[in-house]
Design a protein around this nucleic acid. Sequence first.
DNA 1: TAGACACGTGACTTTCAAGTCACCTAATGT
DNA 2: ACATTAGGTGACTTGAAAGTCACGTGTCTA
Lengths: 101, 101
Amino acid sequence: MFRALADPTRRLLLDRLFERDGRTLGELEAEVPELTRFGVMKHLGVLEQAGLVATRKDGRRKLHYLNPVPIRLISDRWIDKYRARTLDVLMDLRDRLEGTT
Amino acid sequence: MFRALADPTRRLLLDRLFERDGRTLGELEAEVPELTRFGVMKHLGVLEQAGLVATRKDGRRKLHYLNPVPIRLISDRWIDKYRARTLDVLMDLRDRLEGTT
DNA sequence: TAGACACGTGACTTTCAAGTCACCTAATGT
DNA sequence: ACATTAGGTGACTTGAAAGTCACGTGTCTA
């Protein structure tokens, strides 16, 4: 899951799907001109396996949908913990600045 | 930054530093018995370069401090975007369920 | 129904991060 | 002073991910 987010190309693909859902492989391929179709396919596979992207087949096309739930999960159980800590950091900094003025 | 978070060992180190700050390399090494000192050193180096860990030298020892600010940054500018989207997903689901009952 | 279209598979190369090791420097205690 | 302790460097191996390609399958359409 973290590993799926580690690659810039994959984050780009997520951003594109965030803008507009339900795209086909061909459309997404056009968003990443520096890669071949197979490269994009692999990245989408990783995203799908991580549960970040859900797919539906429509005839010969494959539609890709964004699933933001896993991101929320790690946000809730992991990120928020550190998020709260930043308040302490900032208040410490404030206290120290007030002490030295 | 995302890449720094992608490795489980590094997330473990962050968690240990979250519990208690200002540890030395030796102490952190003991938290990861399956790795040698050098492996842990490398991971700490990655975390430091990503700005997630700040260090201070105290004699021959090197103290490691957690810096939660970068995590908050990606949380604010990236995660929250998707976080909001989960609300839509849940409300869509609710609407569809209500429609089919 | 033949060709074009959209996607999939398996094998392959390449690139890079992870991890270890031999060896080194600097600080500390006695 | 000397051994010990804490950490650092550079070279090396290795395993996994990234990326490409030749070829194959199913699907639409003229």
